[in-house]
């Protein structure tokens, strides 16, 4: 997976669902090699933000740029080919297809056979459980394995920026940590930038370099992960540490 010099820049992004103003002017950046987390309550617009970046929903105004390219109005299939890849909420693996076919679909937009084989091997080394179940229907995997598959599938697109939406959703605590360690490893080894949406702010801020707090469609706070961890408002609202010693 290629490290790159492409930076994601969002400028004053507005997204509407009919009359609902879901994103009210969001600006943020993700630099190459960074892990950036987006924390916020349910319905704050975190998933909408990822969907707007990856082209699954259209922004009404504002701008999304990746490197030199303006991708605000680009179709999702083009955005993937530029290296901005979204692993959507709820894993959304192809349940009736084998693990192998799921991974092959990750490489759908690519033509470099040798590169695909190398990345396939890399993913299977990263997630040995997937290798064991390569011929199995993806629907028969456990929740943790499905999340590994979702991440593996996204890695096979050869992302420069990987956007993960709630990768810990519904996982046992030890699995949560395992997934996050893997995300950290991927970022460290291959320099893939990561934009991480997560309910579990503890874990997210532990692996991220920087973070943004999203509240009802607006960014209300931003800073390094360390600053956010010690910010009293973040502590109170997202880390549940009010009154803690």
């Amino acid at each position: 997976m290629a490290p790159s010099s492409d930076r994601l820049v969002l400028e004053d992004l507005h997204v509407y669902y009919d009359a609902i103003h879901a994103l009210r002017g969001v600006s943020l950046t993700v630099s190459p090699g960074e892990i950036v987390t987006l924390i916020g309550a349910n319905g704050a617009g975190k998933s909408t933000l990822l969907r707007a970046i990856s082209g699954l929903v259209r922004a009404r105004s504002g701008r999304v740029a990746f490197g030199e390219a303006d991708i605000t109005r680009a179709p999702a299939s083009v955005i993937v080919r530029r290296g901005v890849v979204h692993s959507p909420e709820g894993r959304r693996i192809f349940a009736n297809m084998s693990v192998r076919e799921n991974l092959e679909l990750g490489a759908f937009s690519r033509n470099d056979k040798a590169g695909i084989a190398r990345d396939m091997e890399h993913v299977l080394t990263l997630f040995p459980r997937l290798r064991e179940r390569i011929g199995q229907n993806a629907g028969t995997l456990s929740g943790g394995e499905q999340q590994m598959l979702a991440i593996g599938r996204a890695l096979l697109t050869r992302p420069k920026l990987l956007m993960l939406d709630e990768p810990s959703l519904g996982l046992a605590p030890n699995l949560e940590r395992e997934i996050f360690r893997t995300v950290e490893n991927i970022n460290r080894e291959s320099g893939v930038a990561v934009l991480l949406v997560e309910q579990n702010a503890h874990l997210a801020l532990a692996v991220a370099h920087r973070g943004y707090v999203l509240e009802t469609g607006r960014i209300t706070l931003e800073g390094t992960a360390r600053d956010l961890q010690s910010n009293p408002e973040v502590k109170k609202a997202y880390l549940g540490e009010e009154g803690a010693p």
Partner: peptide, 10 residues
């Protein structure tokens, strides 16, 4: 199987 996921995979 899943149009959103298919789109997300390009």
């Amino acid at each position: 199987e899943d149009e959103i996921a298919a789109q997300a995979m390009g």
